[in-house]
Computed example of a mutant assay.
Amino acid sequence: MTSAFDEFVTRVGPGAPERERERRLLTAELAELRAIGFGTWRVPAEFGGSPLALEEQFARLIRLSVADASLGHVWRGHLAFVESLRLQPADAARPWFERILAGDFVGNAQSERHATAHLETRIDRASGRPLLSGTKYYTTGSIYADWIHLAALDGDDRVAVTVSAHHAGVRSTDDWDGFGQLLTGSGTTVFDRVPVAGDGILPSVTTDAAARGAHLGSVLQLALIAVIAGIAQRALDDTIAFVTPRRRTFGFAGETLPREDPLVQLVVGELSVAAATVRRLVLSVAADLGAASDQGATAEEFREIQFEVFRLQEIVPRLVLEATTRLFEVGGASAVGTGPALDRHWRNVRTIASHNPVIQRTRALGRFALTGTLPEWSAPAAEETRTPRYARVGQA
């Protein structure tokens, strides 16, 4: 399937600006990727898969995001769902792996809009069968999905539940109004008395829950950073394509080739540095995360990797936002045209970086280093969890 994937990303890449301008959802492109098997490449061999190393899966996610940043982003929830299945007992994971190998796609729907952190999406068992009702926002990929994975309350228990996206009670709306990542389907999804199948609630795996949480949290956030790495490479490619045929540099009469201008060369060099650096950073952490998963790492070891992901969330957007601003120095007013759509790179990175505000992650790292307080992502007045000083970042 590698050659099919190579052909796919080469073919769909040129149409990305037009798809965004027309706000044409990626239904056809996603169907092709499903047929190629993109969503199956981490299914374990014992369930019928031919698994890639996690580092290679992320390398392909970056390549997909070079072709179309929204298309790469759409897969975030599905890839995390597959990783979560790898942590489940075999009998619970098997039916879901069978669906994934058959080509099913899983969307993600976690966020709610409330003044408190309490969930309002619930499972009602009064009728004798479990029925899910609630509203979720920023439901990336759900408009394209066969199944939607979400958090809900089952009585007083918070559970991870997965329901069919094809039931009449599920309505996904493409109402995402952000200025970037326009085709991710990150709109509103309403669930109205949607049946929950017997295997729709996976067992709560309590063995080393902290390790599992840090593992999956790292996968989810690293996927976003991988999309940014893809944008950085596409920004470089688009800038080279924009500069190379040009015959005149601003401020100089006659034919003065921009590609021979030292200042243009400097800007392109900066883009090249940013793209190569962030790709290497993402793949390095992905390799560590894959090895930790394969070797059954401890909670503390997974936490250290999660902190590495937090560090990438600080440095990668900063590098790429700066580079995607500087790229406009290569062409004067013509560089801001809607044809090349070079502005979309900055807009898309800024949108992704806003999913989990970088400043919160960075402050959490500093607080942990200084006080040993683990990140809780709760209200400032909430009780804080502390860890012994010897376990702090950067200390033996």
Rank of each mutant, 00 (worst) to 15 (best):
Y138A: 00
T139Y: 07
T140Q: 08
G141M: 02
I143K: 01
A145S: 00
D146V: 09
I148N: 11
H149D: 15
H149C: 12
L150K: 08
A151I: 01
A152E: 07
L153C: 02
D154H: 09
D154L: 03
D156T: 06
D156C: 00
D156E: 15
D157Y: 08
V161T: 12
T162Q: 05
A168M: 05
A168S: 15
R171E: 15
S172Y: 13
S172T: 14
D174H: 14
D175H: 09
G178D: 15
F179N: 08
Q181N: 12
Q181A: 08
G185M: 04
S186V: 04
S186I: 01
S186Y: 00
T189Y: 11
F191V: 08
D192N: 13
D192R: 15
V196R: 08
I201P: 11
P203C: 10
S204R: 04
V205I: 14
V205W: 05
T206V: 13
T207C: 03
A211T: 09
R212L: 10
G217C: 12
V219H: 04
A223I: 01
A223F: 13
V227P: 10
I228D: 08
A229I: 10
I231E: 06
I231Q: 08
A232T: 13
Q233E: 15
R234F: 10
A235I: 15
L236T: 11
D238V: 01
D238R: 14
I240Q: 04
I240E: 12
T244S: 06
T249I: 07
F250S: 12
G251K: 00
F252M: 10
A253E: 13
G254I: 04
T256M: 10
T256E: 09
L257M: 04
L257E: 08
R259W: 05
E260A: 13
E260M: 06
D261G: 03
P262W: 05
L263A: 11
Q265S: 09
L266E: 07
V267I: 10
V268M: 12
G269I: 07
G269F: 07
E270T: 02
L271K: 01
S272Q: 12
A274F: 05
A275I: 06
T277A: 03
V278G: 00
V278C: 03
V278T: 00
V278R: 00
